[in-house]
Amino acid sequence: MENVVELKNVTKRFKGFSVNHINLQVKRGFVTGFIGANGAGKSTTIKTMMNLLRPDAGEVKLFGLDYKTHEKEIKQRIGFVYDGNIFFEGLNLKDIKRIVAPAYKRWDDTIFYQYVEQFELPLNKAIKTFSKGMQMKASLAIALSHQAELIIMDEPTAGLDPIFRRELLDLLQELMVDGNRTIFFSTHITTDLDRIADYIAFIQKGELVFNQSIHDVAENYALVKGELNLLDRDTEKAFVHVHRASTGFEALTDNIKAAKNIFGDTVIIERASLEDIMYYFKGGIHHA
């Protein structure tokens, strides 16, 4: 089974906001980074994967199983980390462990205490006294102590200092050495992904723009820079969005070959960062 998560045509409508026809596959053994602006639908998609909300239409499958019939089996195999603390604030880590551990068949106290030591977490202090980074580490320690195959994280790096962000990436990378683990995490800090992501899923205004390997992204998307007089209705079709300035234009293409054919050596073609891609898509999709 290649895909650990499979969303088919998932639609969920709220007042004034919706996610539409999301088709998303998360591949086993790889890290998928989930990017998108704030409010693009990242959390809603993650909540759908966790069965925290049920879609109005479409199919959600994890490990090839359906939540309707295999909810517990599925959740036994997931470790979750959310943006912000979801554990009872007044309790200390030891008590939280006492509440969470019995829920998992494969909970391993040895691993848990190993992480507690590695992360230098106090066991007897109330969670509410923890810093943001410590709360994240505590969630992570719990998420990693029951041999989860899929780690789902919603904005795990938001609000963390750069040093801890790097430590987290190191840790995730270590987890990936075991080829059975899959990581899916959302972020709007795209530099987190440059290092560890294998696949990038990009959501924009409730719609999935793409879900590609980092190689495909690099081979399809590029920044094109050139003189304004090169632009006309036809040549502009090669671009997702064009930014014009008096000194020239800068545009994002999703088809490097086509751009090369049209413009040849008259323009500069550069690698587009994930941030570039997000920025230009925000300007709206120009061509049909």
Partner: peptide, 13 residues
């Protein structure tokens, strides 16, 4: 809300 998110993310129905 957090408590409900926690309980529903754990293997409980």
């Amino acid at each position: 809300v957090e408590t409900n998110i926690l309980l529903n993310s754990l293997p409980y129905t």
